[in-house]
Write a protein that binds this DNA or RNA. Sequence first.
DNA 1: CATTTCTCTGACCGTTCGGTCAGCGGAGAG
DNA 2: CTCTCCGCTGACCGAACGGTCAGAGAAATG
Lengths: 210, 210
Amino acid sequence: MVGTHRNLRELLEPVRIREIGDAALRVVSRKGLERTTMQEIADEAGLAKGTLYLYFDSRDELVLHVAESAFEELQVAVAEALARDVAFPERLAAAVLTHVEFFERRRDFFRLFLSVAHPGPGVERSARHSRSCNPLYRAYLDRLASFFAQGQAREEIRPFPPDRLALFVSEGIAGLILRRLGETDPPPVEEDVRLVVDTLTGGINARRNP
Amino acid sequence: MVGTHRNLRELLEPVRIREIGDAALRVVSRKGLERTTMQEIADEAGLAKGTLYLYFDSRDELVLHVAESAFEELQVAVAEALARDVAFPERLAAAVLTHVEFFERRRDFFRLFLSVAHPGPGVERSARHSRSCNPLYRAYLDRLASFFAQGQAREEIRPFPPDRLALFVSEGIAGLILRRLGETDPPPVEEDVRLVVDTLTGGINARRNP
DNA sequence: CATTTCTCTGACCGTTCGGTCAGCGGAGAG
DNA sequence: CTCTCCGCTGACCGAACGGTCAGAGAAATG
């Protein structure tokens, strides 16, 4: 019967895609994006290399798919924190906390996040690795920038270029997270979050009147 | 005469090492560290690939040598700014300015700086690319951290963990520089420097009484 | 049972890269 | 002019990677 075949394929394909994607994420988190090979993803997924090409046209397409999924997850989490209708410093704190906690939960995604955020070469494109996922990081930064712009419109924060500010903050946080992931026993999340939030809200100068 | 031969070799070796190192830096700045090949460095230096191996044992050793030279140059520049005996915010501003200007002058080094700063893989070592240059970035961060620690001893800045603060600031600045290098017409250096310095000294909150 | 129709496999291919080495060619010595 | 020395060359090698494809093998069909 033909219907059975259709059902099997339609049921199997999403499962395989998810299996392969999850395996890819695990391998990337261990080895970094550049050193992740199709063979290793296949081994991790318990499949043969050729099978990967039944569900993805190329390595780049696979990476792009995984990156898109993970970025969307991050977007949703941070957007939720930014959307709460509370005072500005609280929203900022919530966003930073969400950000750090997200990568604490999804350690496997952070390496991919970094690889996507920092485009490999400068001018010369045409890599064998996906360059096309940059827009994902751009979109992520834009959301943060518009948050700052919104605060500036309400005259709650100083008129720095919002995109520059977003970049500075985002990269600073990413640096802390990267360090955390390398530490066997990182300090509590709240400590790093407080550093960022306090610095941003009040600077690093000692309080004259505590 | 034997002396002539000795002189030639002793004179030639440092020159070749410098030529090859400079060529490597140029190629890395164009293509990124991962995509820089020995063949391309050789072409850039006007030599054959085999010649590189007369002066360096391996690709990793070449990269390490170039990274060490460049990091030392950066260290000297920033240390100089940090050493001035002026008030704290001024020293900070000078350091940030020096940092940004250094990479504005030495664009060719920044890509290598990034590759060295962010260790490729997480746990698994044994890459074909040099992992041994991480200490260079660590040393760089330590200097910045001790600057903050010094300020804390004088109770001029708040008691955040100095190494964390250094990391946050350093990565934030690096993000801004990376953006600048990608822009065809970046804003003046002073603008980005002011963003960082003002944020660090006073936070991003709008001044209540300007 | 044979036949058809799937998914899945892993040996294989072309390419790229780090690294090697037999030998070239010019400069100096006799 | 010949011989020796030596910095330099680039063809070559093996390893590793992304990607392919003929066919194995299970499952459904008759």
